[in-house]
Design a protein around this nucleic acid. Structure first.
Lengths: 225, 225
DNA sequence: TCGACTTTCAAACATACGTTTCAAACATGC
DNA sequence: GCATGTTTGAAACGTATGTTTGAAAGTCGA
């Protein structure tokens, strides 16, 4: 028996566990997945999870670290492209451009579960922060946040430095909550009696971008009152 | 032994349980409070929880239903006052007015834990919906949402009907997440290296209102692109 | 075919939690 | 003061979960 998992990467069992974990986390949330249910659905013995991943937290962390990493990479690529275009045209990136670069990872066709999974991670970290959620947020997401705020600064130069921070976090909050509502066919569809369709990627993207661009586009008098 | 709790309302034990539950839910989150820890901190036997409340879910539901109810009542009162003033002046309520009516329940001095608790409820409902979270959301919050959207419609007549729904939910999402960050001395304070102070009620309110008013104040071209 | 290593499996294990039990303490009306 | 109903208390219970165990099965090179 080996505890080091560096050599077990090609096992079919290991892969099945990983794939099913991602599915189930997206469907049931992080606390809603038990080792037993996971093993059964993957057609695998329960002990295999511990054999291949050491323990359940390790598996969970692997899944979500990967999701976070892929999301950030995609966004950084988007931002780099936008930056290049803007520079070539002798201007700064625009707000709609950078907002779209942010939400793209969620509304994109080829990464269907990404948004829901990342929302689960972030909400879990808020509802019940743990060692592994903290680790992922710090190691995979924090740097990107700083980078993104740099772009916000350039695209919305009227915002003060505190406003940049506040609005970045408010923006992330709005997006995460809307993703979690989209996930479990939710409150919004319900209250609107079918008027809005959160599961429609196009509508989702349009409404999200519109809201976010507006929310970043103007400045109030500071200190107000 | 009585299972009906209508007569046990005046017990000191019952009150202690309830008070400590509210404290602990605000501090540790909903899943972070065990019957044992609660009983110990309240200086009460574990069985008292079940004796006075039937079971733990009942207690939790009582706490959060009350928080939700009080929040909604306060907001309705705010909106009624705003409406009266506006009508007297022959105009519609303004966006800053109705946004402030919304966030007031959280930034107010005399209800310090309200915001954090309600955020825990809403996030819990998203992360892990259960019978009792669903019941509270439906019975205490949904009606208010409809009412509030009515005010949004009047204060922001340029928004289409779907936009009203989308932006209400995006707005709620942003607020809930910012409250949960304020709660556990959080990511925002951290990333900004002390530049912003989410625990400062005044700053919190100003930034929140500014963000929300902007996010509701303008309309993008629908369908975009 | 053998032997060493890896992987799978059913079962047992440890633990944390909400809940129940039942007797003791308490309160209250007569 | 006693009988009756209420509240408290320590301990036991049931259950769900992640984890460990030890043997069986599989893999593969010599």
């Amino acid at each position: 028996m080996r505890l080091n998992d560096s050599d077990k990467s090609s096992s079919a069992t290991r892969g099945a566990i990983r794939a099913v974990a991602e599915e189930m986390y997206a469907e049931n949330g992080i606390d809603g997945v038990t080792t037993r249910a996971l093993a059964e659905r993957a057609g695998v013995n329960m002990a295999a999870v511990n054999y291949h991943y050491g323990n359940k937290d390790n598996l969970t962390m692997a899944v979500f670290r990967d999701v976070a990493h892929r999301t950030v990479q995609r966004r950084l690529k988007n931002l780099a492209r936008i930056d290049a275009t803007a520079q070539a045209e002798g201007r700064e990136p625009t707000l709609p451009e950078i907002v779209e670069a942010f939400v793209d990872a969620y509304v994109n066709e080829d990464t269907p579960r990404t948004g829901v999974l990342l929302a689960h991670l972030v909400l879990q970290h808020r509802v019940r922060p743990s060692a592994w959620t903290r680790a992922i947020v710090r190691e995979e997401l924090d740097d990107f946040a700083i980078t993104y705020m740099g772009f916000m600064r350039r695209a919305a130069p009227h915002l003060t430095e505190p406003e940049i921070h506040w609005r970045y976090h408010l923006m992330v909050g709005a997006v995460m909550m809307s993703l979690s509502d989209q996930a479990r066919d939710g409150r919004m569809a319900n209250l609107s009696k079918g008027l809005v369709h959160p599961e429609d990627r196009r509508e989702f993207k349009d409404q999200l971008v519109a809201f976010l661009v507006d929310s970043l586009g103007h400045r109030r008098a500071p200190g107000g009152g």
